[in-house]
């Protein structure tokens, strides 16, 4: 999806004093949302400012920290590194969409059980990255988790309990 020319994925709707806006239609946490956005709008800002889904955090401006990680069509993606128009037609899951009617997702539960969060700022992104990692690899060990989460920074936990939680949830 990254690298797709803008005009092929979004629909030019109308001109405004700021330039043109495009209509983006995307399924977010199971609900179809259709919104006009400036083409330069980052997916992270789209989710936070347009849809009010502020669980997705922003921790950097160099695509380094992973605080903004969401699932796009089931795979983890850094939402600060994509434009909203790139997810036109896609299925996006944010941290708000993870817990179901019967409570927390097993990965969230494992983070809670293993004390894998402190300030919680990295947590939504970390959890989403971990969900995707566990989904992708069936026989993860500690090293695999450490390598797999390399793109997600946490300043509080020293990662020991995060690794423990991801392994627990992968079982």
């Amino acid at each position: 999806m990254p690298g797709t020319p803008l005009l092929e994925v979004g629909r030019l709707v109308h001109m405004t004093p700021w330039g043109f806006v495009m209509e983006v239609s995307v399924t977010v946490n199971g609900e179809v949302r259709t919104v006009d956005v400036e083409p330069r709008t980052l997916l992270a800002h789209f989710l936070r400012d347009e849809l009010g889904l502020t669980g997705t955090n922003i921790g950097c401006d160099t695509s380094s920290c992973g605080a903004c990680t969401v699932l796009v069509d089931g795979r983890s993606a850094k939402s600060c590194t994509m434009l909203a128009v790139q997810v036109d037609g896609a299925d996006v899951t944010t941290i708000e969409g993870l817990a179901g009617k019967d409570g927390l997702h097993p990965m969230q539960e494992a983070f809670h059980e293993c004390h894998a969060l402190q300030c919680g700022y990295c947590t939504p992104g970390m959890v989403m990255a971990a969900v995707s990692l566990v989904d992708e690899y069936s026989d993860l060990d500690a090293d695999g988790v450490r390598e797999g989460l390399e793109g997600n920074l946490c300043r509080c936990t020293g990662y020991q309990n995060i690794v423990k939680a991801v392994l627990a949830a992968s079982e």
């Binding site: 936070r48 502020t54 708000e96 817990a99 927390l104 969230q108 983070f111 809670h112 919680g120 700022y121």
Partner: peptide, 21 residues
């Protein structure tokens, strides 16, 4: 004892400064 802070932080319910409407 597991933390009572966790559920809000794990679900995106917690409001950080940039989350305020």
């Amino acid at each position: 004892r597991l933390r009572k802070e966790d559920p809000a932080l794990l679900t995106g319910e917690a409001k950080f400064i940039d989350d305020l409407e």
